[in-house]
Amino acid sequence: MLFSPEDIGAIWLTLKLASLVTLLLILISTPIAWWLARTQSWLKGPINAIVAMPLVLPPTVLGFYLLLFLGPQGALGQFLNQLGFSPLPFSFAGLVVASMVYSLPFVVQPIQNAFSAIGEGPLEAAATLRASPWDRFIHVVIPLAKPGYISAAVLGFAHTVGEFGVVLMIGGNIPDETRVISVQIYDHVEALEYDQAHSLSLLMISFAFLVLAFLYSVQRRQKNSAMSGGLL
C-alpha cells in the first residue's frame, strides 16, 4: 500500500480545504480586484499593499496573529463566541479562514491584472449598446477576464495545498480536521518514516509540476489566440 489510511485522510482533507478556499477566494476577490483595477482613490496603494502582504511575510507571523485575532481573547474570536460559534483555532473552519488570508494575493492579483487589461473600450461599447453595469460585468468583463480567473483558481488552489507554517500555527495537527498533507509529511519525517514521507512528497512534486505546466500552456495559448482571435 503506497499510502496509509492516515495519508489518504490527509490528502482528502487537503483537497477539501483547497477547493473550498479557492471557491470562496474567487468570490471575495472579484469585488476587491474590480475595485483595485478601477479606482483612482489614494487608498489603492495601501489596499494593494495589504492584499500583497502574505507574499512577503513569513507564514508563522501570519499564523501567529491570526491565532491571536481568532482566539477566544481575540477581537473576532470574542465576537464569534458571543454569536454562539465555537472557537476557530484548531478547527477546519479556522484553517479555511487562515488559508484565505494566506492565499488572497494569489487570487486577487491575476484577476486584477485581467480586469485592468480589458480597459475602457469594451465597457464603453457595451454601455452604448444598452448593457447595464451588471450586464456589462457578466457578459463582457467575466468572459474577457476568463484567463485571469483560470490563473487565479489554479494558483490559489496550489498555494493552499502547499501551505505549512500557517496551518501549524492555527490548525495544529488533528487528524481529519486540520492535518493536511504538508503536516503529515512533517510528522512522517519526525517519526523517521522516510518511505511514507517520500510517497507524499513525490505526490506533491508531481502535482506542482502538472499545475505549473498547465498554467504556462494556458498562458501561451492565450497569447496565440490573441493573434488568431479565438478564445483560449
Partner: peptide, 16 residues
C-alpha cells in the same frame, strides 16, 4: 449611457 437611445461608432471599432 446605457439608458440613452443612441448608437455609437468608436474610432477603433471596439468590437468585443
Amino acid at each position: 449611457p446605457h439608458l440613452r437611445p443612441i448608437g455609437y461608432v468608436f474610432q477603433d471599432a471596439n468590437l468585443f
